[in-house]
Design a protein around this nucleic acid. Structure first.
Length: 570
RNA sequence: CGGGGUGUAGCUCAGCCUGGUAGAGCACUGUCUUCGGGAGGCAGGGGUCGUAGGUUCAAAUCCUGUCACCCCGACCA
């Protein structure tokens, strides 16, 4: 490609509303432009990278035995009503009506459509297992789209759905997809980890998210320092910590008029925060006799809402009690609650069970109990794992301790089971001629997000540093004085033709710009290899080569250039 | 949805408090000089100041409504 005939829409200044590096650099490098909140146009340069991701995904999906299809972006409401998601899905589902007033939605995902297709097309267990995928535009009406293409409303996703007669077959395909995903992200040159994930409301036995590690990520991932264990913090089990110490303090009621939060309490009374507890009140389930139930975690810990929601005594979905509810039941406000003299049932976190001489709200306005001890002052209530793990916790894998890093979720593999096939009666006949509900798996990759994630992981102060597989162009051929020097022009044209003939993606910067401008643009865009053609070099029979990350350039004999680049790209 | 902020040239922003002829840098057009790290000079083009209304002799500036965008939170899995 000749830069003079190509839209190089680079920006010197960083647009004001771009927060994260990938967003800033994608705008500055001229990869994308915003149309409206969460909607982006891909410019030629950005699209080249996007297509490279798609191609790798396609190759690996095909290699793993999946078949490509393309489903409509617009889907009829009936299918969603059949699965029950028309009601379940909130405003994130963009709904619309056609001229006949029939209801549709813009697909945020395609379980319904594929299940409908498969139940019509597949009759026999002999046709299974089968795995279908597509690369297609989705729409989720995010409340707050942000970070450019990282969390946009419209985005491109590779979604695959597999069908099986039994769980073993599902597990087999799941494992194959897991491996395919590892292959894909490895080929893309990303530092990624598969992590155990929550299966959410859908249930199912197994789920892994694939995260690209980057400090700007929106998810916290817990890693063991002694094994491969990695899990979304939502999922990681918080093991009990040590054992309870002996009581040494008297129980006493203390006035704490200005301590409404743990932070204030700790500061005003100079307490160690791990000797305090937070008492949170949530709606109880039908299994509970009371309407509300108290959940107690250590002052320095956070309640894990997913773990809490899974407890039989707790109402799902989790709902925090309102201040009025709390005052009605306790006669005290949320800042003064505690497990002693509690009018409702109570569940404490494992780490709370091991406390001694600790501080709790007294359930009396502006008062706390100091020096509380289990057994002596009150019986130990129900104990459960209620909190998010924190840095330094013991790893649930049995050895080592956890560290926590930020990740960007770029892929998710999921065993759906029979949720959709059951709701939509997707069956095949088995060996006995009996209709059986198919088991399903689903496997997604955020294609557009991968592009942003790759940048989050690979950039410097000059711009993007593309992994080889993602670079929009592999080589930048930069002739200096192209318009003036016949020698430069002739040699550059010759090299350009030769590189193209060798199948190399080359961008020749034949623009009438000063060298500094060209160099800056090439670096911003992140092209991995740069070859400069100049009168000065040609006089010595050399070209000047510089890799994107090299500190210095080096001279290459003119005649060796094409071969040299082939080697660099191999 | 709650809280905060911003809308002035393609981009980054000043001007608004204290009303009085709409600005700068970058980008763009022409031209001259320069020519290996985002050049300099000269000459240009480009803005109903988001939008609607109000106050006023006079509104980018003050007031009210409205729309859009951004940030924080909640929501969502």
């Amino acid at each position: 490609m000749r830069a003079s005939q190509y839209l190089i829409a680079t920006l010197k200044e960083t647009p004001a509303d771009a927060e994260v590096v990938s967003h800033q650099l994608m705008l500055r490098a001229g990869m994308i432009r915003k149309l409206a909140a969460g909607l982006y146009t891909w410019l030629p340069l950005g699209l080249r990278t996007l297509r490279k991701v798609e191609r790798i995904v396609r190759e690996e999906m095909d290699a793993a035995g999946a078949q490509e299809v393309l489903m409509p972006a617009i889907q009829p409401a009936e299918l969603w009503q059949e699965s029950g998601r028309w009601e379940q899905y909130g405003p994130e589902l963009l709904r619309l009506s056609d001229r006949h007033n029939r209801e549709f939605c813009v697909g945020p995902t395609h379980e319904e459509v594929i299940t409908d297709l498969i139940r019509r097309e597949l009759r026999s267990y002999k046709q299974l297992p089968a795995n279908f995928y597509q690369i297609q535009t989705k729409f989720r009406d995010e409340i707050r789209p942000r970070f450019g293409v990282m969390r946009s409303r419209e985005f491109i996703m590779k979604d695959a759905y597999s069908f099986h007669t039994d769980r073993d077959s599902l597990q087999e395909t799941y494992d194959r997809m897991y491996q395919a995903y590892c292959n894909i992200f490895t080929r893309l040159g990303l530092d990624f980890r598969p992590v155990l994930a929550d299966t959410g409301s859908i249930g199912g036995s197994s789920s892994h998210e694939f995260h690209v590690l980057a400090s700007s990520g929106e998810d916290d991932i817990a890693f063991s320092d002694s094994s491969d264990y990695a899990a979304n913090v939502e999922m990681a089990e918080a093991l009990p910590l040590g054992s309870r110490g002996a009581a040494t303090e008297e129980l006493r009621l203390v006035d704490t008029p200005n301590a409404k939060t743990i932070a204030q309490l700790v500061e005003q009374f100079n307490l160690p925060i791990e000797k305090t507890v937070k008492t949170l009140v949530v709606a109880a389930s039908d299994e509970c006799e009371a309407e509300l139930i108290a959940l107690v975690v250590r002052g320095d810990h956070e309640l894990n809402e997913i773990k809490a929601e899974k407890l039989p005594q707790v109402a799902a979905p989790l709902r925090m009690a309102t201040e009025e509810e709390i005052r009605r039941v306790f006669g005290a406000g949320p800042g003064s609650l505690g497990p002693l003299n509690l009018p409702i049932p109570c569940i404490i976190d494992r780490s709370v069970e091991t406390l001694s001489d600790f501080v709790v709200g007294a359930n009396i306005e502006d008062k706390h109990y100091f020096g509380l001890n289990w057994e002596r002052d009150l019986p130990v209530p129900a104990v459960a794992d209620l909190r998010n793990v924190v840095e330094g916790d013991p790893s649930p894998c049995g050895g080592g301790t956890l560290s926590i890093k930020r990740g960007i979720e770029v892929g998710h593999v999921f065993q759906l089971g029979s949720k959709y096939s059951n709701a939509m009666s997707a069956t095949v006949l088995d060996e006995n001629g009996k209709a059986v509900i198919m088991e399903m798996g689903c496997y997604g990759i955020g294609v557009t997000r991968v592009v942003a994630a790759a940048i989050e992981q690979n950039y410097d102060d000059k711009g993007i540093i593309w992994p080889a597989a993602l670079a929009p162009f592999s080589v930048a051929l930069v002739p200096l004085n192209y318009d003036k020097s016949e020698a430069v022009q002739a040699k550059a044209d010759e090299l350009y033709a030769a590189l193209k003939a060798a199948g190399i993606d080359v961008l020749m910067d034949d623009r009438k710009e000063r060298p500094g401008v060209k160099f800056a643009d090439i670096e911003l865009i992140g092209i991995p290899h740069r070859l400069v053609v100049s009168d000065r070099g040609l006089g010595n029979g050399v070209l000047e080569y510089k890799g994107r990350c090299d500190a210095e350039s080096r001279d290459i004999a003119v005649d060796d250039a094409v071969e040299f680049l082939k080697q660099q790209l191999a």
